[in-house]
C-alpha cells in the first residue's frame, strides 16, 4: 500500500511498529520521527531489536503492524494484510541505502561494478552515466584507484567504504548503517567513520546502529536507546549519553568509553 502524504520536515516516520518472530516479540509499538538531514544513533544491548528495527525500515524484515513512511512512500502493515508486492517492496528499498556489518560486497564483481550495479539494474541508468557516477562516488570515499580490483583484494575498511559508495549510488533519501564498523580491525574503524561523518555533514539523513558511543555523541543529533524492543530513552545525543535519565540507559552506557580524548 503506497500513498502520498505531504511531509513536513520529517523524512522518516515510524508509527506503532510491531514485529515478532513466532512467539518472540522483538519490537513492541515503536514510534520514531527523524528530521530530514539529521543523524539518529540507535543503541542498546545485544538482542534488543536494533537490527530488526533498521531492517524493517527497508523491508528486509516485514513488520507485523504499524506504519512506516520514508520520504513520500508509506507502507501500512497489519497482521491480516497481505505482504506488499515484490515490485513495491523493491521500489521502497531503492530509496534507502543500507550498509551491513559484514559489507556484503558482490565478490564476483569488481569494485566499480559493485557500485554500478544498483543504478544499472534498478534505475536502468545508461552504462556510461552509471560508470561516471560510480567513479565519482569511489573518489568521494577515497578509493578511485581500486575501481578495477575485486573485493577480496581489499581491506575491511576499504570494503566498507565501497559498500557505502554502492549504497549511495542509488541516490537514496536515507542511509541505514547496521554496525558498519563492528567487523573491522580497530585501526580501520576511523576511515569508515570519517566517510560517515562527511556524509552527515553533507546533510544525509542517517540512522546508525553503533557501539561507537564517542562517534554517536559527536555526530548524531539524536540517540535512541532500545531495550527488549522498547524505546527506553531518546533525546539529543549529548544529553542521553552524558546524562542519561533512565537507570537502564546508565547501566548500558557504563560499559563504553563515551568520549574521545577531548
Amino acid at each position: 500500500m503506497t500513498g502520498t502524504i505531504t511531509p513536513d520536515n520529517t523524512k522518516i516516520e515510524i508509527t506503532n511498529l510491531k514485529k515478532q518472530f513466532g512467539s518472540n516479540v522483538v519490537l513492541r509499538d515503536i514510534n520514531v520521527k527523524v528530521d530530514a538531514g539529521s543523524v539518529v544513533a540507535l543503541i542498546g544491548p545485544s538482542g534488543s531489536g536494533k537490527s530488526t528495527l533498521l531492517r524493517c525500515m527497508n523491508l528486509l524484515v516485514i513488520p507485523n503492524g504499524g506504519r512506516i513512511r520514508i520520504g513520500h512512500d508509506t507502507f501500512v502493515f497489519d497482521d491480516g494484510s497481505k505482504m506488499p508486492k515484490a515490485k513495491a517492496q523493491a521500489h521502497f528499498r531503492s530509496n534507502t541505502g543500507m550498509v551491513f556489518q559484514h559489507f556484503n560486497l558482490f565478490p564476483h564483481k569488481t569494485v566499480l561494478q559493485n557500485v554500478m550495479e544498483g543504478p544499472l539494474v534498478v534505475k536502468r541508468t545508461p552504462k556510461a552515466k552509471a560508470e561516471q557516477l560510480a567513479r565519482t562516488l569511489l573518489g568521494k570515499v577515497g578509493l578511485d584507484d581500486k575501481a578495477d580490483s575485486y573485493p577480496d583484494r581489499l581491506s575491511g575498511g576499504q570494503k566498507q567504504r565501497v559498500a557505502i559508495a554502492r549504497a549511495l549510488a542509488m541516490e537514496p533519501e536515507v542511509m541505514l548503517f547496521d554496525e558498519a564498523t563492528s567487523a573491522l580491525d580497530p585501526e580501520l574503524v576511523a576511515e569508515v567513520l570519517g566517510v560517515m561523518r562527511d556524509l552527515a555533514s553533507e546533510g544525509m539523513t542517517m540512522i546508525i546502529v553503533t557501539h561507537e558511543m564517542a562517534f554517536a555523541r559527536e555526530v548524531a543529533d539524536k540517540v535512541i536507546f532500545l531495550r527488549d524492543g522498547v524505546i527506553v530513552e531518546e533525546g539529543p545525543a549529548r544529553d542521553v549519553i552524558d546524562t542519561p535519565k533512565e537507570e537502564a540507559t546508565r547501566a548500558f552506557l557504563s560499559h563504553f568509553h563515551t568520549r574521545n580524548n577531548d
Partner: peptide, 27 residues
C-alpha cells in the same frame, strides 16, 4: 550462497528475480 548477498541486492532495490539472476546464481 551467503544470505547477506541477496540482502545486499534487495537493499539496492533489485527484485528477487533480478537478485537471483545477477547476484546469487553467478556465485
Amino acid at each position: 550462497v551467503d544470505p547477506g548477498q541477496s540482502e545486499a541486492g534487495l537493499a539496492l532495490g533489485m527484485t528477487p528475480a533480478k537478485v537471483m539472476k545477477r547476484i546469487v546464481l553467478p556465485q
